[in-house]
Amino acid sequence: MKKKLVLLSVMRIVLLVGAIGMLSHAAALIGYAAGAKYPAKPILFVVPYAPGGGTDIMVRVIDRVGTQLKVLPQPLVIENKSGGSGVVGKSYAKTKPADGYTITCADDSSTVVDLFGNSPWPYNDFTYIAKLNRDYQMIVVRVDSPYKTLKDLVTAAKAQPNTVKIAGTGVSQIDVLHLAMFEKAAGVKLNYIGFDSGGQVMTNLLGGHVDAAIANPGEAYEQMRAGKVRSLGVSSEKRLGFDSSVFKDVPTWKEAGVNLSLSQWRGVAGPKGMAKEQVGWLIDALKKITDSKEWQEQYLDKFLQVGVFVTGADMQKEAEEEYAVYKTIMEGAGLLKKK
């Protein structure tokens, strides 16, 4: 009899999965038909990266804080579709109707992927909703490194171009671009070694296989706190206000003699052509969430992010200006693959 039992339970699981799928479709139809007040059903948030990554965490905190504060009437439905530096998930979100019930992540990765020629659609083919946070870049070295200041590193790199090995995350990614901007501003040429993850970057820095690394404050913080890694400078306009025992003495690149500031950002967007009211509702909701002290504590402080709030057309304008800047940089560095 047991084999029947096993069979039955397998069948049951299969049926259950199917039923859940159908139910969610049925709910969708009901929501539509009534023309009910938005949002009449849960909103799908397509996270175009793997679970546990920076973007995924951001979305999950939005969901958690939004539900806690009752800003979101129902929890978000979070679906991770990773691949192609975010292209796969964003493409998927773009195939959904622009009815306000599917949103996804907006970030500078869309711009970068487009410029590197790996995106099937233009980077700004979205309804921009809100930009929520900034992240900065630091040049870090091991504590025993001969480079005590950014100037030391720049001087060494100038004396012998292409010999200072600097690790970063990925190829055809923002680290490559930011480093190209750094090289241009500092007038140096570094030897970029692109790894697959921030973890590998840190391993290779600590293991002495590279001379320096480009890393976000959140990636380097614990190593700095433990006295293993030193930051030579940060790409922000002002010094960072996080844990002052660690960041107080980290100069900005400008202070350290490299006239450049840059940042990465994350936010929320939807498929092109969303209605004004829905965008407005989402902006309000995100404003309430990101103004809360829960957001500050659970996301910004914990992951060393700086909160911003830029919405709709302003956000699109910023993205387009950024695109133009990046494009020029890439042309100058001979990186541009897009015709």
Partner: peptide, 25 residues
């Protein structure tokens, strides 16, 4: 060391940070 050695461990590390722990040396 606070360095994730695989995809699963990287997720675990993200979770630790969400809990307020500070995976590092």
């Amino acid at each position: 060391l606070g360095i994730p050695s695989s995809a699963t461990v990287a997720i675990l590390m993200g979770a630790l940070m969400m809990y307020g722990l500070r995976p590092g040396p």
